[in-house]
Amino acid sequence: MRDVEPGIGDILLWGVLPYVVLAVVIGGTIWRYRYDQFGWTTRSSQLYESRLLRIGSPVFHFGILAVLVGHIVGLVIPKSWTDAVGITEGMYHVMALGIGAVAGIGTLAGIVLLIWRRRTTGPVFMATTANDKFMYVLLVGAILAGLATTAISVFDHSVTNYRETVSPWFRSIWILQPDVAAMAASGLSFKVHVLWGLALFMVWPFTRLVHAFTAPLHYFFRPYIVYRSRDARRGGHGSTPTRRGWDPIGTPDRERPGTRRR
């Protein structure tokens, strides 16, 4: 695995580029939040069309969440840990293939449906910017690259196991000791998938994808919002007291002699 001698290109791609991407993601997100909070949105087009959106959006979002969980398990958890709990390499790959294929195909089906809706619905297409089109190209490319990588790793047994190449390299990035040799020893399909993913993350803060960084998790913890109260002292229902009619309004200098002040 480590008999590949990394060259200058490998050092730039797998030792330098990841930190450039991290700097762009962090700096771009901070810049976007400070100077473009009104643009920090998905720019929802539900008002123009909702039938296809109700189908495509949940399929895509649940699929992408499953893909994210799969990547975390595959890249973060070392092989020695799964071996320690009795999960053999064969069992791991069967689960990864089954869950990954379902999640990837679901994600692809959802994004294709959303793109079809955006292209065929006039008002939605008119609201689509060049930035959106570029983002869709990168997103679909990343999904296709991931599916292709999964298929190649299953049917081509000559491809080096990504748990011995890509995963150690990914973990080494976060301890500031990039294992360039490990990534250089990986297969071409993995390298293309990683580079496409890095390109997607580099433009992430400058597209509508930035809304993923502000998921409304606080909705689960916020207190109830009282719209109407039931207070018997204030009329039983609602928040305003019941009145019998118009209340007279006047001042002492305008009251007629003999009338009693209320």
Rank of each mutant, 00 (worst) to 15 (best):
R244F: 06
S158H: 13
R222N: 08
K79P: 00
V210L: 10
P58E: 03
R233E: 05
H61N: 12
V20K: 02
R43G: 14
W81Y: 11
G63T: 12
I175L: 02
G100L: 08
A103S: 12
R34M: 13
S44M: 04
I87P: 14
I99D: 06
L97D: 04
D36S: 14
D36R: 15
Y35G: 00
A109M: 13
R163V: 04
P248F: 04
D3P: 14
G236T: 06
V102T: 13
V76D: 00
G9E: 11
L144D: 04
W31L: 10
V137T: 12
K79T: 05
V24E: 10
L195H: 04
W204H: 12
L198D: 08
R234I: 04
F170H: 09
M1V: 13
I77P: 00
S186F: 02
G100S: 08
I105Q: 09
L138F: 15
V159S: 02
L217E: 02
Y227I: 13
L200D: 01
T259E: 13
S44D: 15
I225Q: 14
H237D: 06
P248W: 02
V67G: 01
S239N: 15
L195Q: 10
R256Q: 13
I152R: 05
S239E: 12
R117H: 08
P6E: 08
P123H: 07
V140Q: 07
R51H: 12
R222D: 03
V73E: 01
L147W: 00
T165Q: 05
A23Q: 08
R222V: 07
L147M: 14
W204R: 00
G141H: 07
Y219E: 10
Y48F: 15
R262K: 04
V210S: 15
Y35A: 03
W246V: 07
P78K: 12
L209K: 01
A109D: 03
R117F: 03
P18G: 01
G9M: 14
A199M: 15
G74H: 02
V85G: 01
V137L: 14
R222F: 02
R163W: 09
L195S: 13
E89F: 00
D36N: 15
A103G: 06
Y136P: 01
E255S: 02
A182L: 04
K191D: 00
L65A: 10
K133R: 15
H237F: 11
Y224A: 14
L13E: 03
T129F: 05
L144Y: 07
K79D: 07
E49N: 04
T160H: 07
R2A: 04
G28M: 02
I249G: 02
V94A: 10
H211S: 13
G141D: 07
R43V: 03
F62E: 05
F125E: 15
R51T: 15
R163T: 12
E164T: 10
F213A: 12
L47H: 14
W169M: 03
R208D: 02
L200T: 13
L139W: 11
F60S: 07
M183G: 02
M126V: 05
L198A: 07
V210T: 13
L188W: 13
G56V: 06
G63A: 04
M126I: 04
E164W: 09
G9H: 06
